[in-house]
Design a protein around this nucleic acid. Sequence first.
DNA 1: CCTGAGTCATCAGTCCAGCTTATGTCCTCA
DNA 2: TGAGGACATAAGCTGGACTGATGACTCAGG
Lengths: 306, 306
Amino acid sequence: MPLAHRVPDLGALELLLAVARLGSLGRAAKELGITQPAASGRLRGMERQLGVALVERSPRGSRLTDAGVLVTDWARRIVEAAEAFDAGAQALRGRRDARLRVAASMTIAEYLLPGWLVALRTQRPDTAVSLLAGNSTAVAARLLAGEADLGFVEGLDVPPGLDGTVIGHDRLVVVTAPQHPWARRRAPLSAGELAATPLILRERGSGTRQVLDAALAAHGGLAAAEPLLELASTTAAKAAVVSGAGPSVISELAIGEELAGRRLVEIPVADVPLRRALRAVWPTGHRPVGPARDLLGLTRSRPADA
Amino acid sequence: MPLAHRVPDLGALELLLAVARLGSLGRAAKELGITQPAASGRLRGMERQLGVALVERSPRGSRLTDAGVLVTDWARRIVEAAEAFDAGAQALRGRRDARLRVAASMTIAEYLLPGWLVALRTQRPDTAVSLLAGNSTAVAARLLAGEADLGFVEGLDVPPGLDGTVIGHDRLVVVTAPQHPWARRRAPLSAGELAATPLILRERGSGTRQVLDAALAAHGGLAAAEPLLELASTTAAKAAVVSGAGPSVISELAIGEELAGRRLVEIPVADVPLRRALRAVWPTGHRPVGPARDLLGLTRSRPADA
DNA sequence: CCTGAGTCATCAGTCCAGCTTATGTCCTCA
DNA sequence: TGAGGACATAAGCTGGACTGATGACTCAGG
């Protein structure tokens, strides 16, 4: 039942990628710091596990089979996710002597920052980053106290005492399970319908909730209905929607995978501007320099509203 | 150096997700088929490895810490990639009694099919799928020989003897390393410039190459310059571009990760329609039924040109 | 032809990570 | 106050993965 028994472990996947890149078991082994027999055995084990030959061995080297090419590309996805994990985890470990201290809102820390950190690492391998995640107020406090060099917040305004620049936008989307009647609508949802429907929402005070309330209020003074369910985390809300409990309004950053896998369906909405800016922020007058400036450059060159 | 030593293995990540979902070490352990002490030890090991407390234990159960929430979300990315890997690998194993036999072009098999298979599995858990990857001709041959139930091809036309439906589009994009002068251009690239520049390309005969040639020819009869480098796989071409060898034209499906991580930069092009249709195909008159129809439904509801 | 430098496979032996079983501690609830 | 659930700890086992040595094979060059 558990996935781990059917999918090779990370070491084996890295080995496969190295073999694909270097064209030789022995060289791949050396790169990973193991011996050639270990690599040979490991690759053999992976092929036995998958029931498919991945590599064509010859006395002149090794090449991927057709199946091997496919498997290698799928493996690369896993390894890239692992790299993002590693970059995030290293930042989270947060040693005090870190040269770049970042404070970020939860959504940005979860979905955007790991990718930025991977990119930063290829550009500045020696920059140690520490990460602190919290809400906008906490981010502002850290910056003003000099405990962070650069902050990232989502929301409608820049906290007082800070300067900032918009680095992208986060759209809130209405989602349901594919079985929900809304998933078969042809016409977009109206603001009135949305306001009148009990939704699955984060607790009051969350950024998502604020934006939704503000957007409905701006649009003819509507007030959202009492929530169907109030949950503490985005993940819990997603799970509730997937299981068919009802519709919800969630950041598009959080639901890419679910939309792709058709576990969730986006419902178009008319006339309700459910966007919020994503901003990099810093104490007024202290424009980012050094590694903070590098990181800022990475974030700006890729708008987050793709 | 190797990633595997710094990232917990898949089993540990699954355990973390289960704990987050179930709120108890013991229940999570039972779900994964291990004992509670094993789960306890494993979680402790993971926390030691990351240097961060992930779970708050109490005699009434376990909840994630703030850091735990972040780590769990990053872990979920890895596990989802592993699910896609698993779905693809099972199909590749291709037992003869598979109820649904799919033949797909390389690009679709690599980048789109695993996601579809994961979705199909939640919808029809008992459908065994087998996968055969090859070029358009091979896909057509398998279908006409009755050796496959459903095919997927990318390209300009439907192979003779087959019916089909467009399920999305694949855009070819011009990419360079971020250091390349083109990355700093303001104006889009003209067709003439593109045609005049030696590029890193797949070998002649590949689908990518055909589309590029056709698009340039259609646009004022231009012919592409001699390639700078001819490589056998998309992956090799990507690697060459990333390392700064020169610009290339690659399917956008293949470079999502690289664009996000700023290892590659997309260069806008004026007036050259580098699109190709992605089609599901089947033998004329044999409209898909049963599981093939289910799979087709999944692919159509999510256009691949997002 | 040999020979040396590559490749990969096989074998035997060691070692450790992770498992299980058994038990202890703490809290909560009836 | 005792039962039950949740987690931790301890002891012992086992299998998987590693190393190091060796052998088979191919190719290029004297």
